[in-house]
């Protein structure tokens, strides 16, 4: 048998630059009193860094992976996510 697989297969793991959360210069902060739990941010986040807690109708941002791109803040229809400097 050869040492490489017959077609490239990758396993998810932490990259050589560490978790992507360290790349952030601005940070999304959720104002839970405004949030209607419409999940637009959860759907749009390119890093899947937004976790849903259905029982509490609450979103949590996983800052280990959030890159701070601001898409969630941009798509939120009620402006419940503000971007603050790190």
């Amino acid at each position: 048998m050869h040492k490489i697989p017959i077609t490239p297969i990758m396993k998810p793991s932490e990259g050589s630059m560490g978790s992507t959360g360290t790349w952030r210069i601005v940070k999304p902060v959720v104002q839970h009193d405004k949030c209607t739990y419409c999940l637009q941010c959860w759907l749009h986040c390119p890093e899947s860094a937004i976790v849903r807690v259905d029982e509490e109708r609450k979103i949590i941002i996983d800052y280990n992976y959030c890159k701070g791109c601001g898409i969630c803040s941009d798509v939120c229809p009620v402006k419940a996510i503000i971007m603050v400097e790190e």
């Binding site: 017959i6 077609t7 490239p8 297969i9 396993k11 998810p12």
Partner: peptide, 20 residues
Amino acid sequence: NPITHGGIVTPEYYMEFRYL
């Protein structure tokens, strides 16, 4: 058991996959 298939391979190994 998540995997990604078919990601980028540099000039170092691409040709070997073609040979296989």
